[in-house]
Nucleic acid binder design. Sequence first.
RNA 1: GGGCUUGUAGUCGAGUGGCUAAGACGUUCGCCUUACACGCGAAAGACCAGGAGUUCGAUUCUCCUCAGGCCCACCA
Length: 822
Amino acid sequence: MALSQRPDSIALQKKWTKKWDEAEIYKYDSRSKAPVFSIDSPPPFTSGALHMGHVLSYSFFDFAARFKRMTGFNVFYPQGWDCQGFPTEVKVEKLQSKDNKDGKESKGAKDGKSGKDDKSGKPKLTRQEFKKKCIEFTLENIDKMKMQMIRMGFSPDWSQEYRTIDPSYHKKVQLSVLQMYEKGLVYRQKHPVLFCIHCQSAIAKAETEDLQRETKLNYINFSVEGAPLSVATTRPELLHACVAVLVNPSDERFKKLVGKKAITPLYNKEVPIISDNEVDQTFGTGVVMVCTFGDKTDVAWMYRHSLPFIEAFDNRGKLLNAEEFTGVKIVEAREKIIEKLKALELVTRQESTQQVVKLHDRCNKPAEFISSVQWFMKLRDWQDKIKRAATEDMQWFPQFSVQYLIDWANFVEYDWVISRQRIYGTPLPFWYCEGCGAIYTPKESELPVDPALHEYNKKKCDCGGQIIGESSVCDCWIDSSITPLVIAGWPDGDYEKLYPATLRPQGLEIIRTWAFYSIYRCLALTGKSPFKEVLINGSVLGTDGKKMSKSLGNFEDPEALLAKFPADSLRQWAALSGALAKDRPFSYKDIEYANSFVTKLWNAANFVDKALEGYKPEKSNKAHNFSITDKWILAELDKTIEVVTRSMHEYDYYAAISAIHSFFRLSFCDYYLEDVKYRIYEEAENKAEAQYCLKTVLGATLKLIAPFAPFISEELFHELGFAKEEKVESIHVSKWPTPTGFEIDEETGKLASLLHDLISQSRKFRSSKQIGLNEPIESLEIGLPEELISNFSDIKLDLSKIARIKTLDVSSKKELTTQFKV
RNA sequence: GGGCUUGUAGUCGAGUGGCUAAGACGUUCGCCUUACACGCGAAAGACCAGGAGUUCGAUUCUCCUCAGGCCCACCA
């Protein structure tokens, strides 16, 4: 049958997606005895549509999945959705405020306590209503993203789909938290959190914006053994919460003071003088006062040096424990306290300085740290175990990327705050007594629970205190850090069949979170590392080499690209641009190049299809009448299969796709097809051998490219009858090609390159004399080294036919010489 | 400031302790040759960032400098 024009890519995509779905070729077979290859693929965050980063990374996972299927693995490739989290809340709030015609935003949803907007007094969504909106928004996004994934030709087993909002998922998350609680790894404690005193809400760092501003740096005298010690601070209003004075251990000026006590001005409190490497000797006087809490460093220092904790102000920003200044607001207190210190002649200097403050992005007021009760998971003592698991139990691709995890593990200073005062998240499965702080947990059979809504809340503790259901939800990494367990079916008994996962593919930027927390939690829950191989990909930059972002105008939308290019081309772009763990600028040229390759493949297949008319396999197999070029192309094919196979095993998709492209384009299309044309058209006696080679090479190439270009390879695999011959439903479940085992001797190799060299020279000659390729050349005299002369007859016919030279004469020369005549 | 990473033709980018350092895009020239003009053929274009060291020999290994990128931290 003759192939027509290259088919429309959308029609192709629809046709094969449907067939693959019906034939369930991507389905994991739990009864199969084949070795399992399981992929713990990232559940994308469902606050929007797919972006180019997804296109790049999910293409990588898909290459792996398709390759492994073809090499005989029982591939387990689920796809999840990471649904809950702050960005979704923000987007839903924005949508809500758009609906409000007066333009006022709903703040009620934010504080996690009340569903009413206490500022405007207007009725707003309740907690439950808001949550419902978030879920609706999420489901819409999942539909959109799933559709895009299908259009990209990604091949997860959709029967294994999971969502982190599903009750079954919540149940597992809560169970995992409870089990870690049983092991003593979860606790409840007072902890500083970022808080907006204007909006009355705890906020995440991600909700803040930096503001560079000018402020006053005040030099204030403390005293040590009666002598003054000058300390520079921008926040004198926190003096009452000063718990220590820090100096750098290598600072000669203060070495003698370390270990002694300093007396704070105004409040006359005795605080220790401690040395710490993080103190900048050149800033201010080189002496820092540590307060609870001026900023994040204060928090770090407080934990590091086990300093006592003084509540500096309440959640309305009014000073606490500050003697005469108690109840005064922060900004006002700053001025009043400086005035008083000046009056006492304790301020020696004031100078302007630049500082960066964190503003709440909704109200543009400075965020403060305040103390609040939070839930924690113990990370201390786990760093070494995590590092050991990552280095001993796992192989990282590329190797250096494990260093990101090690660095992070070394850096962790305090435990993981797992509670968030938000709405859209997995509820923490705990109750606590308001009075004595006793903690109550649900039974496993009660899960999933929302303690905030539970009737248990009406009960009293043994101590007589009221029992309160926790209303905080889990950090979203609590949800996603157990994916290796969830996909394996944990906690059911036979989860170990699929645990640990074979492969964890993920982005470089979330090694510190997703990889780190997954290893930690899975180790804590099972004692076993969660995966064996980690594949790290970088992110896609704009064409200008900068991080892709809508505001920079270097943003590419996959949706728009899919309208212009077939998925097969986009996927090849991913392979072409994706050196592991490296950020790559986006390139239209790569896509266009990939696209032209798809066309090339189609056209070459078209030629082969016609050339195979009347082909009788038995003729070629028995005759062994292979020409030099036949032997050469089969040997080249073998080399390519070897390189591609090795590269695929190593997740080196760049190497794989380049090898395929260059073999097919250069060796096969540019040389071999030209070499055999005369044998096909002129019914040469060794035509069957040429047909055999054409068919073998095309068939193998289709398979090699199948993981990268699943649609076009499938179409051609069926159109040219390979599927029927191999009795398989799809190229994607066919066997990965193995080398034909065709040995090529040195002599044959030399003759093949001599032939191609002479053809090339003839073309140069034509080019210089402006002779068209279809006009014959009268004669060619060739001077050849002795050792090539005897075998020259093997390529003589090919040369005269392919280069269209009427007469060929050969004589013995030291080196190759050519003399063309028109 | 810390960690990682990169610096190869006009552009994007492979690769190697020693033979003429891939390929693509772009450029120039010639071709609609019965698969393909989304094509074919030919050509030009690189002191492999700079400096020092190791070595018989370095673009490749080590160190320094300079310049990018990503992540983290960020000054009281």
